[in-house]
Amino acid sequence: MPLIELDNVSKTYNTTAVPIQAVKNVSLKIEKQEFTAIVGPSGSGKTTLLNLIGGLDKPTNGSVLVEGTDISTLKPDALIDFRLHHIGFVFQAYNLVPVFSARENVEFIMLLQKIPKAEREKRAIELLEAVGLGDRIDSRPSQLSGGEQQRVAVARALASRPNFVLADEPTANLSHAAESLLDMMNRLNRNYEMTFVFSTHDPRVIKRSRRVVTLEDGAVVSDVTTAA
């Protein structure tokens, strides 16, 4: 069973005067431990596709199966709970709670999972060390650079021990830190056997991806896997 399976998925936004079909008949399988980039020009539907996979949006047509569960059938609170336990999220920017320190940000998601305090603290410090922020655990987001903030977001995404991490343009707000963030994600992918699905239009990032799915006007136009 694939980790993620999209079967003929479409998403149409009817909120505008002219309905916009952001995702068109996408069928896609993603297996465990993959390191997949969704690429395409602006407006091609990358964010929409990731939101459909992450259960932040519901498809107009087709089904999204995550570990065999059709997530569009879940009730609101069950869906939130599903996200909490199965999916890690990293967004483009401003991922963190500004009043919390790096450690507290990572701990908070485990608190939502009702993990005991000792375990939370141990895991948070471990993960912050893994993303190279062992010496900044008590810094607030405002005291961290953009790249460092994204690293905390990645640590938080891993803290809940999800089945995969979705990252929507994690490097878009970074300049020189983009490559090192990607290298770090790559390392986590190998060391923790963690599946990553991320969107980007940054060539440096695309170069570091093993599988590249290209979207154009909401449809998949190419799907290339390079040997690692």
């Binding site: 992450g54 932040l56 609101p76 609170d77 939130i80 709970d81 996200r83 909490l84 336990h85 890690g88 999220f89 967004f91 401003y94 991922n95 709670v97 500004p98 998601i109 939502l112 999972q113 938080r156 995404a157 809940s160």
Partner: peptide, 16 residues
Amino acid sequence: VREIGVLIAIGMKRGK
């Protein structure tokens, strides 16, 4: 709004 949206996205339930 964004911050609360992120929290709901990562798994904070409505009751919380």
